[in-house]
Amino acid sequence: MASAAQRNIRSISYAKYGYIFILPFFLVYFFFQLWPLINTFILSFYGNGAKADDFVGLDNFNALLFGDGMGRTGKAIHETFVQTLINTLIVWIGNFVPQILISLLLAAWFTDAKLKIRGKGFFKVVMYMPNIITAASVAALYLSLFAESKYGPINHMLLDWGVIKEPIQFVTGVAQSRGMIMFIQCWMWFGNTMIMLMSGIMGLNPSLFEAANIDGASSGQIFRKITLPLLRPILIYTMVTSMIGGLQMFDIPYLYIKGTQRNQFTKTVAVFIYEHFREKMPKPNYGFSAAASVVLFIITIILGSICMAYNRDEDEARKKKERKAMKKKLKEQAKNNLGGIGI
């Protein structure tokens, strides 16, 4: 057995390697991530276009959030920004709700030991596949399939069958284009969510399911009373990651447009940011896009911490209760053992 002093010496002599090993990560992080993040905050207080070097204080935020200052430009920017926030929210909810429902259902079916589903492995492989395909290609593919002219394959087919009389505006219509983007996002992600939920369900204690089965619980009861409550942490994790992913939604909304003409009703916040700093390139609007990024960052932090806090609180509370009960018990025990003398 090494003495405490010896152990100390050993840990001191190797600790420096720990720092050396993690150093490259942190150096690169600070240079390529943390400084750009701080830089974004700084840029949000500076001007746009040709006036990029002027300090403007909170003008960008005022314009974005309230449409104050900057006259007509400010108002227009405010309207677009609010519209993109609404678009992002609608498209995210519209893809997340069906996605989580389908994934949950499939995950429950695939993990149910009573059901024998043929080709489970094959289904999993196929359902995950859309997630792996390049998003840019997916957008181009759907754009070609759902082309608006009567020669677009889907419109063509529906016209031939007599389901519709006029070609559907899949790309420029408000509800249609939003619906399409929701569908594409859902199509790309439901397999991934399903597999994550499946691994979550398989990580639950199997004896609970056995006990329920022996007690004669139906699959529906087991799902509602055992699987769902125990799966909550994983569901919340899925929701948080999907939400952060949803706020960043870029590839599909950016590319699913007719030619180069941007659809105002599918433009997300990420597209707004990108447009202002990238497409106006020789004189980019750093100020507006940086301010929008800061707003996005704050929204992400708020939503993320609400979910996390909501999740953690009950766990913590339960643990606290347990600890209290434990202490009480120990105290009582000590009382009994020592004949009433408390320690």
Partner: peptide, 13 residues
């Protein structure tokens, strides 16, 4: 948890 988009403006500049 930090989204890519948030750092991209500062990154590009």
């Amino acid at each position: 948890m930090v989204p890519m988009q948030v750092t991209s403006v500062g990154f590009l500049q």
